Amino acid sequence: MPVYLDHAATTPMRPEAIAAYTEAMGVVGNPSSIHSQGQQARRMLEEARETVAATLGADPIEVVFTSGGTEAINLGVKGMYWARNAGARRPRILVPGGEHHATVDTVEWLERSEGAKASWLALDPDGRIVVPSSVDSDDVALLTFLAVNNEVGTVQPVSALAAVAHAAGVPVHVDAVAAYGHLPLDFSALDVDALSVSAHKIGGPVGIGALVLSRASTVVPLIHGGGQQRQVRSGTQDVAAAVSFAVAARLAESEREAEAVRLAVLQDRLIRGVRAAVPEAVLSGPEAGAERVASNAHFTFPGAQGDSLLFLLDMAGVSVSTGSACQAGIPEPSHVLIAMGRGEEDARSALRFTLGRTSTEADVDALLAALPAAYAQASRAGLAERATRLGR
Rank of each mutant, 00 (worst) to 15 (best):
P171N: 05
C326V: 15
V197W: 06
H298S: 11
L213D: 05
L75R: 15
M44E: 02
L390N: 14
G391D: 00
V177K: 05
V243F: 02
G329R: 02
P286Q: 07
A387E: 14
Q327F: 13
L146S: 13
A373P: 03
E16Q: 13
D191Y: 15
L270M: 09
E114T: 01
V152E: 06
V148L: 08
A48I: 02
V232L: 07
R269I: 02
A378M: 14
R233N: 08
S67Y: 11
R230D: 07
D124R: 06
A339L: 09
A165T: 08
G29L: 03
R230E: 14
V274G: 01
G317W: 04
H35F: 14
P372N: 00
G306F: 10
G79A: 01
W120C: 08
A241Q: 15
A264H: 14
R215T: 13
V320M: 12
E151D: 08
P2S: 12
V140D: 00
E280T: 04
G76S: 06
R292L: 00
A246W: 12
V152K: 01
S198A: 08
L195F: 01
H100F: 14
S324Q: 12
P331D: 11
S159M: 08
S137I: 00
S284L: 15
I93L: 06
H182C: 15
Q37I: 13
G235P: 04
Q377Y: 15
W109D: 13
T154S: 10
A258P: 07
R112K: 05
T154M: 08
L161A: 10
T70S: 14
Q237N: 13
L121K: 03
Q40A: 07
V247E: 11
A373F: 11
F301V: 01
E46H: 05
F301N: 02
A381F: 04
V206C: 05
L110Y: 08
I338Y: 01
L143K: 04
